[in-house]
Simulated assay, not measured.
Amino acid sequence: MKIEPKQIKIREVFDGYADQGDDGVFAYGGRLAIRPPYQREFVYDNDQAESVIQTVLKGFPLNVMYWVKASPDSYEVLDGQQRTLSVMQYLKHQYPITLDGKKYYWDALPDDSYDAIMNYEFMVYICEGKESEKLEWFRVVNIAGAKLTEQELRNSVYTGAWLSDAKRYFSKRNCAAKLLSDKYITGDPNRQELLEKALRGICEYQGISEITEYMARYKSDADADELWQYFQDVIHWVEKIFPKYFLDMKGLDWCHLYNEYHNFAYNSSVMAAEVKRLHEDEDVQKPKGIYEFLLCRDTDPFAGRLLNLRAFDKRDKLAAYSRQNGICPICGEHFAFEEMEGDHIKPWSKGGQTTPDNCQMLCKACNGKKSDKY
């Protein structure tokens, strides 16, 4: 890759600045794409952005920026997007800075501060090379900054109409996916975490092993309607099966649960009552496991383990061990106390309680095989 250093004044970069939303952000007389397809969305908060302006006002050096030569007279920002946008957005009156204890928007700055900003020179390295070289260099130069997420790296490779449409749904602060799923699914859309979760879910649903395989398959499509429809189906299914919302529903892998159980029939009224009952059950130590437990309890004999049920205390287990004379009631063999585990005689799922009279000691092998038989 060929690299040429160049000093460029802020006033030159600001010339022709235009934020065209999903169509990109441009400056430098329209010749510079500040946000190319493989760059992350702007993630600096106001304090971070102001620190860039304060650095410029003091005449201190900012980190070197890298532009890629896209054509003989056009460039793309390879590294330095957030610093550049911090300056451009301040010049567009999008946030104030503090000077001598007072807030100043751009048009209210003293003349000397105005000149200090406009005449400040960015240190830019102009790079020329193949697409693969640009992306590899992007990985390298971002190590010192905010580390790219895996999905941001995938986005850097599989650009096109499909990705642009997918980002419209999944990659903005108030995007449709965030508004739809915020009660249920965690993730910062700005860092592509919501998009990644949707992609991981649909890949599992379709039997595709890697997200990159899905993105490669659909990168030339005109839209991401299939992915968006799948994500809507997941959330609407959750709302239908569990009509009463509980805070611990947020953060579960609902895409996976949908993939596993959406073909089963459930009574939403029964599910709502069961969720409430289990939240009130003192034996349930893991409330977040309630939802998958209810989805699979009729098909998985070990579903109770999802709830991390309260264990028998040592006193109860010693009493049961003594009653049994150390004999496992399933295999009939004798074991030392340390080789046995406390177990519910009447399974918890069938109404058994974690009480001394419902405790028996099983050898570890038998307890591992035991389900909810009673």
Rank of each mutant, 00 (worst) to 15 (best):
F170T: 01
F170S: 11
S171E: 02
S171W: 09
S171H: 03
S171L: 15
K172I: 10
K172W: 14
K172S: 09
K172A: 15
K172E: 15
R173I: 07
R173D: 10
R173W: 05
R173C: 03
N174R: 14
N174W: 13
N174P: 02
N174K: 07
N174L: 14
C175G: 09
C175F: 03
C175I: 06
C175S: 01
C175V: 13
A176W: 11
A176K: 11
A176F: 05
A176R: 15
A177C: 03
A177D: 00
A177R: 00
A177S: 05
K178M: 04
L179A: 10
L179I: 06
L180N: 08
S181L: 06
S181D: 04
S181H: 00
D182V: 09
D182F: 14
D182H: 10
I185R: 10
T186E: 12
T186L: 13
T186H: 08
G187P: 00
G187C: 01
G187L: 06
G187R: 02
G187A: 03
G187K: 07
D188A: 12
P189E: 05
P189V: 07
P189G: 04
P189L: 02
P189F: 04
N190Q: 11
N190K: 14
N190P: 13
N190G: 10
N190V: 12
N190W: 11
N190F: 11
R191C: 05
R191P: 02
R191A: 02
Q192W: 11
Q192V: 04
Q192F: 13
E193M: 03
E193Q: 08
E193R: 07
L194P: 09
L194A: 00
L195G: 02
L195E: 06
L195T: 03
E196T: 02
E196M: 13
K197L: 10
K197T: 05
A198Q: 04
A198S: 03
A198H: 00
A198M: 03
A198Y: 09
R200C: 12
R200S: 04
I202S: 02
I202D: 05
I202G: 00
I202F: 00
I202W: 08
C203D: 00
C203T: 01
C203A: 07
E204K: 11
Y205L: 11
Q206S: 09
Q206A: 10
Q206H: 12
Q206P: 04
G207Y: 04
G207S: 08
G207C: 01
S209Q: 11
S209M: 12
E210H: 15
E210G: 12
E210D: 09
E210Y: 13
I211Q: 09
I211C: 10
I211N: 02
I211L: 06
I211R: 02
T212F: 13
E213S: 13
E213K: 15
Y214N: 06
M215Y: 15
M215I: 05
A216D: 15
A216Q: 14
